[in-house]
Design a protein around this nucleic acid. Structure first.
Lengths: 353, 353
DNA sequence: ATCGTTGTCGATAACGTTTTCCATAATCTC
DNA sequence: GAGATTATGGAAAACGTTATCGACAACGAT
């Protein structure tokens, strides 16, 4: 009656099949029942006596049977997997991934990450092709974390986590670039700075445009006119940002503060300042945008506008799960607040410390 | 005869099916051929005239048909996907992932990353369960990048990228911890230091043991006796490493150099030195291990022993692909050389700069 | 004693491919 | 022009599940 009987019967039989894996048929044969019954046992369905349940369970364990997920997926037309497509494993997407991994817990979905491997720009439309390939066959839904996702269109359950756009045809989770930039520049202005320079970002990205707009709006709100010569193109690129910072600091009357569209750019600005012997924050205040991990380690530690990256990943998954479940999602364009992280690169104007 | 005819026939029909995706049946029906033929066209198999080939291709494009990967996998008993299991998306595993993503190109495999989401230690044996679940059903092979993979056993194509062990029952790609540690300590010794302290790592990990052994061997080779009071337990933990560094620097005759088993520990040591007013590298030289991205940003930038993380990911994939193909792999325990990255935390003994 | 009920279990048809094999039509050889 | 060869297309069986439904025994109720 008990399980001991199971243990003694047919021992090495399962190992006989070449390379393969134990199948449900084999379990059924071994247990002397039908595959239907084994299936029921595996899924805890109603309609099997506790006797046979125990018996089949014992056989399953003994044979080390694991259900074939592809067969199940084929049959059920769903995979219970959510895919996250990242352009590359850089700090931003990695943080988003962590948030997503956190949010996936308890949803019944598995999370897998696909990386385009950096070569993203080479293949325009990669996202599109990726989506048509894996959606509905490998994953039930997808989160896109790619730099230029704006033009992607897709009808299935897909949400874009977008550091660079507030809006797209896809459901989106993004940070409030405008508000963040305004806040960062406001901070500088309230410190007494009147000549605030800006290292701008890639002109084609909405995020960069919004951040510049925030810069202007902050000035307008404070009644400070914008000196156009104080804006230099950094293009979200370290090298170009360095160049932009140099341009700014070599001005006849250089700015006393610089707002960078990017932490990368802000870090570059810091380097240039150090090169030129400009004290930060003594003679120059700097504010960045993003709050990538490196910012805290810079010298001095960078004051910056933080995007809630983990939160973005989290919310994206939550929204996607709702979307897949067919629930009515009220707002498909979530905008998350940014926060100002005060560190040591800003000081009141004229303050030598 | 040409393709124009295709464009004009049946237009909106494909959109009629509820949620679904275009299937091969539909393409076949639409093109007026059998599914076999469509399959042949999709896979470029022999036995279809160029006429029908073009015709079917046109229909495929018009309907936007994509082959169902799960059905294909079920039929072929292979998925053409390789999985990488990481404990968490921290710097080390992220770098490995990049190397892997790079190596996967052109192999015909797709790469997906699974994260245990940090909660790794909570579930002992997670790797085991993961493997039995996904292997042979979602992936054809797997790379394990987990902290304590030593005890995992599995017969399928699996290779472990292991920062902490030179050997395990699984095929392994690892860095040469012994040689690296010896090199790091050697550097210190050759700079004239005679009292070299060590902040050791987690005693249960082979990597930590090897690094300590390297420390001792370097001393032996240089004919310098090891003062046991100069070893303090850092346990690969920031807090504990700080404590260890404090202990070392408060010694009656403190060390003039410290070798840390870890960059994390080295960074902690740097902090403690700053706290206590000990000049680096003026009064204290420091060498770390790993070369995580943060090290370059520390102040002063950390001299450290670099593990070739990208390379490890790359080699792991290469080996795994060979394993899956059933090729004879000569050495299943690859050990990669480490290199010393000289930055600014080391100086000759007594040199005030 | 007969007739529903319930409780168990198994046959079977999908799911969307790929592949092997067979049927036909077209072409070639003598 | 008859038989053999070659091209082309399709039928059907698998891959390993799950869900629906029907079969059957055992049982209580009338």
């Amino acid at each position: 009656m008990t399980g001991d009987v199971e243990e003694s019967t047919v021992s090495g039989r399962s190992g006989s099949l070449g390379n393969g894996r134990v199948t449900m048929q084999q379990v059924a044969a071994e247990a002397g029942v039908s595959v239907s019954t084994v299936s029921k046992v595996m899924n805890g369905r109603y309609g099997v006596s506790s006797q046979t349940f125990d018996h089949v369970t014992a056989v399953i364990n003994r044979l080390g049977y694991e259900t074939s997920l592809v067969a199940r997926s084929l049959r059920n037309a769903r995979t219970n997997v959510i895919g996250v497509l990242v352009a590359d494993f850089e700090p931003f997407s990695t943080e988003v991934l962590k948030g997503a991994a956190d949010a996936i817990r308890g949803t019944g979905y598995e999370l897998v990450a696909y990386s385009a491997g950096g070569r993203f720009d080479e293949h325009v439309g990669w996202e599109r092709r990726y989506l048509s390939r894996v959606m509905g066959t490998l994953v039930d839904g997808a989160v896109l974390v790619t730099p230029t996702v704006t033009d992607v269109q897709y009808d299935g359950p897909v949400v874009a986590v977008d550091p660079h756009t507030g809006r797209s045809s896809l459901p989106t989770v993004a940070a409030d670039n405008l508000q963040g930039a305004r806040m960062g520049v406001d901070h500088l202005l309230s410190l007494g700075h009147r000549r605030v320079g800006m290292v701008t970002g890639r002109a084609d990205l909405v995020s960069a445009q919004l951040r510049e707009r925030g810069y202007r709006e902050a000035h307008a709100a404070a009644g400070v006119p914008v000196d156009e010569s104080l804006l230099a193109d950094g293009a979200f690129d370290p090298e170009q940002a360095r160049e932009a910072a140099r341009t700014l600091l070599r001005l006849p009357t250089p700015p006393t503060a610089i707002f960078a569209a990017n932490d990368i750019s802000a870090l570059a600005t810091l380097e240039v300042a150090a090169e030129m012997g400009v004290e930060v924050p003594g003679s120059l205040s700097v504010v960045g945008f993003d709050n990538i991990p490196e910012s805290a380690l810079a010298h001095p530690p960078l004051t910056t506008v933080q995007q809630p990256m983990r939160q973005m990943g989290h919310d994206a998954i939550a929204m996607l799960v709702a979307l897949i479940a067919g629930e009515q999602v009220d707002d498909t364009h979530v905008t998350l607040e940014t926060t100002l992280v005060l560190r040591r690169t800003t000081a009141t104007l004229g303050d030598a410390s």
